[in-house]
Simulated assay, not measured.
Amino acid sequence: MLFDRIVRPALYRLHRHDAEAVHERTVRVLERVSSVDRLTTALRRHYRVDDPCTVFGVRFPNRLGLAAGMDKDGRALQAWSALGFGFVEVGTVTRHAQPGNPRPRLFTLDASDAVLNRMGFNNAGAAALAERLSRTGKPDVPLGISIGKSKITPVEDAIADYRDSLVTLSPYADYVAVNVSSPNTPGLRTLQDRGALTELLAELSRTSKELAATSGRGRVPLLVKIAPDLTFDAISELLGVCLDHDVAGLIATNTTLSRDGLAPQDARFAAEQGGLSGRPLAARSREVVRFVHEQVGDSLPIIGVGGIGSPDDALRMLDAGASLLQIFSAFALHGPAVVRRINSRLAQRQAAPR
């Protein structure tokens, strides 16, 4: 493919194999593309595949979305839509702007078809994202916004952080993802524990009802993003809390702390801190999605994410019980052609006689 053979190697040579510099350059280019209608129109004509569905009350033009982390501050929204994504999730954003963890903090593991990151929620803050969205408008596909805890906020004060971000950003969101599962913010994953999650979701559910009552636009669906490293018993407890507090769906899964599945050529990365995504996560993410679906059926629709790099991966994730899909690493490593390939296969299956 052109991206694999020419574009990506050239970017890495230009930036001396600095994965974060390549990431930033990609987003910067797509930010410019987003502002040029004739470019987005041309891209949309080539990449867009219509395969509509409705999940948790939101209409999606196709099932494949861009996962959080690629465009944290919502800079290239029209370009993502033009490249064929059926929805875009921006963030994770926090109440307070923050620089994230020290660099280097993003690594590509080519032999493993994986990405390792310890970015630490680097973003300009919830208020800055709201200001940008008020100025540039939303994309022409559903927009999800992932919210998390600021690093400077103690875990015991996390609820106020999440609530503030929800209030600030819900006017612009088609759904809000509550990220309690990133491994790169100290203490964040403890918010998946039953007691902490109960308090957090009770407050966010109450706040979302208040916002709906005053806005007149209905409740914005709340989704919870979970870690692949939880035991099934812990997931069962989490599901009970979600069902008790009107959560609209789950995102399964975030990155993993496991280093299982790394190719021998990438063994040097095993001791690096951070979350692993991409091919090594595929089997575990499907396992979690299958378990969740078996436990709750359609009561909590699932966005399946983790290790989806091909049409076959996407189909397996849907067969495991996911209603929607997201990719991040596959796009970062292989470019936009993977979006069209996946969407085309999903549309073909949907159109096939049953």
Results as ranks from 00 to 15, higher is better:
residue 209 K to R: 14
residue 163 R to Q: 12
residue 133 L to W: 09
residue 211 L to Y: 07
residue 55 V to P: 07
residue 211 L to Q: 13
residue 71 D to H: 05
residue 275 G to K: 04
residue 93 V to G: 13
residue 99 P to A: 15
residue 94 T to F: 00
residue 281 L to F: 11
residue 119 M to C: 11
residue 237 E to G: 14
residue 191 L to Q: 04
residue 84 G to S: 06
residue 340 R to S: 09
residue 65 G to D: 13
residue 160 A to G: 10
residue 138 K to I: 00
residue 305 V to Y: 01
residue 79 A to C: 06
residue 244 D to L: 01
residue 87 F to Y: 15
residue 159 I to Q: 01
residue 311 P to Q: 04
residue 160 A to Q: 10
residue 197 L to I: 04
residue 353 P to E: 13
residue 165 S to M: 00
residue 268 R to N: 00
residue 36 V to N: 00
residue 203 E to Q: 03
residue 138 K to E: 00
residue 276 L to D: 03
residue 171 P to Q: 07
residue 20 E to L: 07
residue 278 G to A: 12
residue 334 H to V: 07
residue 188 L to A: 04
residue 51 D to M: 07
residue 52 P to A: 11
residue 305 V to C: 11
residue 64 L to A: 02
residue 331 F to Q: 10
residue 267 A to C: 01
residue 30 L to A: 00
residue 302 I to L: 10
residue 180 V to F: 10
residue 276 L to P: 03
residue 71 D to I: 08
residue 335 G to I: 09
residue 65 G to R: 09
residue 15 H to V: 02
residue 348 Q to F: 01
residue 197 L to N: 06
residue 352 A to T: 08
residue 38 R to T: 14
residue 312 D to M: 11
residue 157 D to F: 06
residue 167 V to P: 03
residue 262 L to R: 04
residue 212 A to P: 04
residue 119 M to V: 14
residue 249 G to I: 10
residue 128 A to K: 07
residue 66 L to K: 08
residue 128 A to Y: 01
residue 151 K to N: 08
residue 5 R to K: 12
residue 259 R to P: 01
residue 14 L to G: 04
residue 96 H to L: 15
residue 72 K to T: 11
residue 313 D to T: 01
residue 343 N to S: 12
residue 48 R to F: 13
residue 2 L to V: 11
residue 184 N to M: 10
residue 341 R to V: 07
residue 346 L to C: 12
residue 21 A to E: 06
residue 126 A to L: 10
residue 197 L to W: 04
residue 188 L to G: 09
residue 291 F to P: 02
residue 96 H to P: 04
residue 56 F to R: 09
residue 124 A to R: 15
residue 347 A to G: 00
residue 79 A to N: 02
residue 187 G to W: 00
residue 155 V to W: 06
residue 242 C to R: 08
residue 66 L to V: 07
residue 33 V to I: 11
residue 154 P to Y: 13
residue 336 P to Y: 05
residue 337 A to V: 09
residue 280 P to E: 08
residue 219 R to W: 01
residue 307 G to P: 11
residue 73 D to N: 14
residue 157 D to N: 15
residue 133 L to Y: 08
residue 30 L to M: 12
residue 34 S to D: 12
residue 149 K to V: 01
residue 66 L to E: 05
residue 70 M to K: 05
residue 235 I to L: 05
residue 232 F to L: 14
residue 108 T to Q: 06
residue 121 F to C: 11
residue 277 S to P: 02
residue 224 V to R: 00
residue 295 Q to P: 02
residue 168 T to H: 06
residue 224 V to D: 02
residue 67 A to P: 02
residue 346 L to K: 06
